[in-house]
Computed example of a mutant assay.
Amino acid sequence: MELLTPSVDFVFKRIFGIEENKDILLDFLNAVFESANEPGVTEIEILNPFLDKDAVHDKQSILDIKARSSNGTLVNIEIQLWNQRDIEKRTLYYWARMYGGQLVEGGRYRNLCRTVTINILGFNYLASEHYHSIFQLLDTRTGLVLTNDIEVHMIELQKLREVSVGQQRKLVRWMLFLLGPTPEKMGELVMGEPALQKALTTLEFLSQDREARELYESRQKAMNDWISNIEGAREEGREEGKIEGERMKAFAVARRLLNKGMPIEEVADLTDLTVADIERFQ
């Protein structure tokens, strides 16, 4: 049986973002906080433990996970396998929506709770060799943190390709799990880790479930179509730019020939421009 890829957002959501797997999400979050040398959490509430099947077919939809810890911290987790550009602005936008969404009319600013965004990237993005980067709001000269209410984690999966399974940090094991190693490596990876073992069991179940596999394939198709459209638009833009560049070169040649007194008809013949184009150019 071929396992589904855990890093596809649909599968990720089905493993980490459902109520019965809350312990898996808790273990993953604590692995992230441990990697950042921050205290872990003891309890978590999933705020969107549902999956809109229509969203699976929509290439623009975001299958993220929103949660709240027992101390009020809000967490948003999103996995992105392809670079959709403007990640920083997109991240801040969704962070701000989640942070500001806590404040009801007449509410007090002091009641706003810490909000953490965790972006798991399937591509290298930051100019850093570290697979886990943590961003906060602080003084760049002294390192003094203004507030811990804003925190953004960037976890880059591709920077773990060369890391061995024997690494002790739990976050490394989770990231390797998401990369979908061979069955032999997967068995070694989850050994002695109850949460990882449960995640693998869920993955195996999803891989055998016909409806889940159909939704998985639909999600893959939606994302592949999106990528093809983006690449097609870029290629079209490159081709248009190339054509425009050739025309500009032709006009530059035409200018030099006209300055030497060559008749317009001869200039048009030598540059493949029309007489009308050259007259407008003049």
Rank of each mutant, 00 (worst) to 15 (best):
V145I: 15
V172P: 00
T117S: 11
I118W: 01
N148K: 11
Y125C: 03
N124F: 12
F135R: 06
K159Y: 07
W174A: 13
S133F: 09
Y131M: 08
L112Q: 02
V152G: 12
L137M: 04
L146D: 04
L121T: 02
A127C: 01
F177E: 08
I150A: 03
F177S: 10
N148P: 03
I155V: 12
Q167L: 07
Y131D: 09
N119Q: 08
N119P: 04
E151F: 00
V165H: 07
V163K: 03
L171A: 02
L144M: 15
H132I: 10
V145Q: 14
H132R: 07
L157M: 15
I118P: 00
Y131I: 05
P181S: 06
D149K: 12
H132D: 08
L137Q: 01
Y125P: 01
R108S: 15
L157N: 06
L157C: 10
L160A: 06
F123Y: 02
F177D: 12
R141S: 11
N148M: 12
S133C: 14
L160R: 09
V152H: 13
G143D: 04
N119M: 07
H132W: 06
Y109M: 12
R110K: 15
L179T: 04
V145L: 15
L176S: 03
T115P: 01
K170R: 07
H153Q: 08
I118N: 01
G122D: 10
H130T: 06
D149P: 03
A127K: 02
W174D: 10
L121R: 03
V165L: 13
H130R: 09
E151A: 02
P181K: 04
N124E: 15
L138G: 08
G122Y: 05
N148W: 11
T147H: 11
H130M: 09
R108C: 15
R161C: 07
V145K: 15
F123N: 01
N119T: 03
M175T: 03
V165T: 07
Y131K: 08
Q168H: 05
L160M: 10
T142Q: 09
T142L: 09
L137S: 04
Q158Y: 08
H132V: 10
T140R: 11
L137A: 04
R169E: 07
L178I: 12
Q167W: 05
E162W: 13
E151V: 00
F177T: 11
R108Q: 13
F177G: 11
L171E: 02
L121W: 02
I155R: 04
L178Q: 11
D139T: 14
G143N: 04
Q136N: 07
Q158I: 06
